[in-house]
Nucleic acid binder design. Structure first.
Length: 440
DNA sequence: GATGCTTATTTGGGTCCGAC
DNA sequence: GTCGGACCCAAATAAGCATC
C-alpha cells in the first residue's frame, strides 16, 4: 500500500520540479489563451492530425461515449426496496440509509444537479450544497426525520408538534423557522459511527453510495443524471411548455434540454399509428427501464472459484507483483522525475490488470436470468443479504418506509389523514434513524 | 442552430479508520 | 492483522454556456 505524502513532502517535490512558490512576482494578468506565433504552425498541424482522425485511427482510440441510462419509477422502486427491505449493508451509522433515501427522493422529484444537494468536486472545500433554507419539495417524511433529528426547527421538537401546525384561516401556508444553530449545517452531512457530522457529504461520496446501491439491487450503475434525465422526460410528457421545463431544469440555454435530454426519446407509437389503433404513450418508459439492465437474480458476489481462477493465473500474479514493487519504489523515490515515471508505469500495469478483471464483469453481467416464477427457492451468495433476510422481521419500520403504495397514493403527505412517527426518541437519538413508520 | 470552450460530473485506484 | 465502509484524488468524460 502506498504511503500518502505529507504536505511538506509534496511542497519539496514541487520545488524539485522547478515550481516557484514565491508569489511576490505574481500579477493578475490573464494567461493568454491564443497559441503563440512560434508554436502555431506545429499546433495547427497536430490539431489537423487529430481532427482528421489520423492519430485516432493509428492509435485505435475509441470515440464512443458512455451509454445513457434512465432511473424510471420502476428502477427507482428497485433501489428503494433494496435499501429498506433487502439490504443487509452495514452502514457506519443508520443515518446513512435515511440520507441516501432522502437524496434519492430529492432527485427523482426534481431534476436537481449533483452540486445542488451535495458538495461538487469542483466546489471542494466550499461546503456548497443543500442547506437549511426554505424546503418546498416533498419527500416530507424523510426530510422531517432528518430535520427533527438535527433539532432544526426553532419552536418544535417533536413530530406531533410539527404536524399539528395549521396555516392561519386566511392563508394557505405557514413558514416554520429554523433554529439558528442549523443555518450553517448541511441537510445531508457525512456520517460517522457517532452519527451525522457537521461536514457536507461530497458528490463523489454520494455517487459511490448510489453506484453500489444499484449494484446490490441488481441494476447496472445509475448516476445522478439518470434521475435528472427521467425527471425531465416525464415532465415533458405532462404537457408543460418548453419555457417551464427549462426553468424546472435550471437551464439557461434552451438548446441543452432538446439536445442532451429529449433528442433521443420518442413516445410515438409507430405501430398503432400505422394500424390506426388506440395510441399508447407509456411504451417508451419500459424501454428506458431496460437501459438499467436489471437482473433480479444477479449474484452479488461472483463465485469464489471464478475469482480465484483469475487471481491464480500467471499473468495476473506477475502484474500484481510488479504493481507492488513499483509502489515500494515510488515511496522511496527522492527524485520527482523518477517518481512520475514510476507512477506512469504503474498506471499502465493497472490498465493491463483491469483488462483481465473485465472478464469477471462479463461473467457477472452475463449471469443467467431466471424468471422469478421458475426459481423454487432463494439462493444467496451475498452473506449480508442472507443474514438480513433472517433478521428483517425484527425491523417492520424498514418494510413500511419503502412502499410504492404509500408513495403513489400520497400517504406521505402530512396534511392527509395520516401520522408519521419516529421509532424511539425523535429528538436526536440513534434510534430515530433506524426508520420511520406510517400510522394511518 | 452550430460551434468551441468552460465547468461539472463520473470513475476507479488509493487511503483512512473503526470493528472484529 | 484483516476487513469493509467512507472518503480522497486526479483523470476522463459529459453537461452547459457564450458567441456568432
Amino acid at each position: 500500500m502506498v504511503r500518502r505524502r505529507t504536505a511538506e513532502e509534496r511542497r519539496r517535490c514541487a520545488e524539485e520540479n522547478g515550481f516557484d512558490d514565491d508569489d511576490t512576482d505574481v500579477d493578475d494578468k490573464p494567461i493568454p489563451r491564443d497559441v503563440l506565433d512560434y508554436t502555431k504552425e506545429r499546433y495547427n498541424h497536430q490539431m489537423d492530425l487529430w481532427i482528421d482522425g489520423l492519430l485516432r485511427k493509428k492509435l485505435g482510440l475509441s470515440t464512443t461515449t458512455r451509454p445513457k441510462n434512465y432511473l424510471t419509477l420502476e428502477n427507482y422502486m428497485h433501489l428503494e426496496r433494496q435499501l429498506w427491505q433487502n439490504d443487509g449493508q452495514d452502514f457506519v451509522h443508520e443515518a446513512s440509509r435515511v440520507f441516501i433515501s432522502g437524496k434519492l427522493k430529492c432527485r427523482v422529484f426534481t431534476p436537481a444537479r449533483l452540486g445542488e444537494v451535495s458538495e461538487g468536486s469542483t466546489r471542494r472545500g466550499t461546503s456548497k450544497g443543500l442547506r437549511y433554507r426554505p424546503l418546498v419539495v416533498n419527500p416530507m417524511l424523510f426530510l422531517l426525520a432528518i430535520c427533527l433529528a438535527a433539532g432544526a426547527f426553532k419552536k418544535y421538537k417533536t413530530l406531533k408538534e410539527v404536524l399539528d401546525v395549521r396555516p392561519p384561516a386566511n392563508q394557505r401556508y405557514w413558514v416554520l423557522e429554523w433554529s439558528p444553530h442549523v443555518l450553517d449545517l448541511p441537510v445531508f452531512p457525512e456520517a460517522s459511527v457517532d452519527g451525522p457530522t457537521n461536514k457536507i457529504q461530497t458528490g463523489n461520496s454520494f455517487n459511490t453510495q448510489l453506484r453500489y446501491l444499484a449494484i446490490r439491487a441488481g441494476v447496472s450503475p445509475v448516476t445522478v443524471h439518470s434521475m435528472r434525465r427521467e425527471a425531465l422526460i416525464l415532465a415533458t410528457a405532462n404537457g408543460y411548455s418548453d419555457r417551464e421545463l427549462i426553468n424546472f431544469a435550471a437551464h439557461t440555454n434552451k438548446m441543452t434540454l432538446t439536445r442532451d435530454y429529449l433528442s433521443s426519446i420518442t413516445v410515438v407509437d409507430g405501430l398503432a399509428s400505422f394500424l390506426k389503433l388506440p395510441l399508447r404513450s407509456d411504451q417508451a418508459e419500459d424501454f428506458r427501464s431496460m437501459t438499467a439492465n436489471r437482473n433480479p437474480e444477479l449474484l452479488q458476489s461472483l463465485p469464489a472459484k471464478v475469482q480465484d481462477e483469475l487471481r491464480q493465473r500467471e499473468d495476473y500474479i506477475a502484474i500484481t507483483k510488479k504493481i507492488e514493487d513499483l509502489a515500494l519504489e515510488m515511496s522511496s523515490a527522492r527524485n520527482g522525475t523518477v517518481a512520475r515515471e514510476l507512477k506512469s508505469e504503474r498506471g499502465q500495469l493497472y490498465e493491463q490488470r483491469r483488462v483481465l478483471e473485465e472478464e469477471l464483469n462479463r461473467i457477472r453481467w452475463n449471469q443467467e436470468r431466471i424468471h422469478p416464477s421458475e426459481r423454487k427457492e432463494k439462493v444467496y451468495v451475498d452473506q449480508h443479504c442472507s443474514r438480513f433476510d433472517r433478521l428483517r422481521h425484527m425491523m417492520p419500520e424498514r418494510i413500511t418506509a419503502e412502499s410504492p403504495t404509500n408513495l403513489r397514493s400520497g400517504r406521505y403527505k402530512p396534511d392527509a389523514q395520516c401520522r408519521i412517527t419516529l421509532r424511539g426518541d425523535a429528538k436526536c437519538s440513534t434510534a430515530a434513524w433506524t426508520g420511520a413508520r406510517i400510522v394511518t
